[in-house]
Simulated scan of single mutants.
Amino acid sequence: MGLARYTARRLLQAIPVLIGIVTITFLLSNAIPGNPARIMLGPAPTPGQVAAVEAKFGLDQPLYVRYLNYLVGVAQGDLGQSLYYQVPVVQKILERLPVTMLLLFSSFVFAIAVSIPLGVVSAQRRNKPTDHVARVVALIGVSTPSFWIGLMLIIIFAFKLGWLPATNLILPWTHPLRVEGATTRLDVLVESGRHLLLPMLSLGTLQMAALTRIERSSMLETLSEEYVKLARAYGVSETTILRKHAFRNAQLPVLTVLGLNLSTALGGAVLTETVFSINGMGTLILTAVLNQDYQLLMGTTLVFGLAFVVGVILTDLSYAYVDPRVSYGENE
């Protein structure tokens, strides 16, 4: 089985998973006590007003009818109409998704850039002061909630020192005229980096700590393999052993954790965006929950589930690139 056929098979296998996500989210959303029509209309709506809103959004139909209609709409790319914003759900997701994707991407770049060298050095200098420091940093990182890290960063760097802004997020591609104090594209990039730094550190610390521990453990296991001992016996330098023999083979567990941590990062994005007042997917899903916006809640959850499924598939496909021993042949 070639790579293309394997990819197609994995994509087909993802369809039942996404249907399951839609089904569970639909049932849980409709199990929430309360009436979204009454929430939309305020504290004292009349029965006629409630009935009109329910008829407009199809809330007066039986549950199974709404479920089947929603499945058909999802298959056609229609996620329905937001009850709270009164606009298509797809429109709100497209407005907020770039913000969350920028936050997630930057946090993973930070996590990878710090954890890989830290884990390698920690394994290379096992039981030395550098190793102890790296292990303590990783332990603190995985033990500390991202929202608490965000609050501490705001208190220190925004309120006490006044170095960085504490709220909002500026996208790098925003026009300079829409950014206060910016006249050129470079000014926009600088402001975007200043606004992004604190939430990136808040969200990426947990990922960095988890990847550091996995990288260290995987490197230690690889450095104890027989082929590494043989290379040392032939007089190969430690730098060459790390770079050519050990490092690449040690990355499979790291890739696995990296793909699975996407779900953790998506959950952390909800808290991070709330702490830093960022208008992304996290705050959008909170708005949907608080206002019982069924369509918006199901749409955002589906996007999060789709992102996780795609991340797992990309992780699987990257195995063959990192380790030539992994293939997608007919007998695998």
Rank of each mutant, 00 (worst) to 15 (best):
L3D: 08
T25V: 13
F26G: 05
P36N: 08
R38K: 14
G42W: 05
P45F: 09
V50N: 13
P62G: 06
Y70N: 06
G77R: 13
G77N: 13
Y84E: 05
L94A: 14
L102A: 12
F110G: 02
I112H: 04
A113F: 14
P117H: 09
S122D: 12
Q124S: 10
P129F: 09
V136Y: 12
I140L: 15
I149Y: 02
M152C: 12
I154H: 07
I156Q: 13
P172T: 01
P172H: 02
L177E: 15
R178P: 04
E180S: 12
A182D: 07
T183Q: 15
V188A: 01
L189G: 03
M200A: 03
L203R: 00
L206G: 04
T212Y: 00
R213I: 05
E221L: 04
S224T: 04
E225V: 00
Y227Q: 02
A231I: 04
A233L: 04
G235Y: 00
L242A: 00
L252C: 02
T256Y: 02
L262R: 00
L262Q: 02
G267S: 07
L271P: 05
F276A: 00
G282Y: 05
T287Q: 14
V289R: 15
Q292I: 10
Y294S: 03
L296P: 03
L296R: 03
M298C: 05
F304M: 12
V309T: 09
L317W: 10
A320I: 12
P324A: 09
G329D: 13
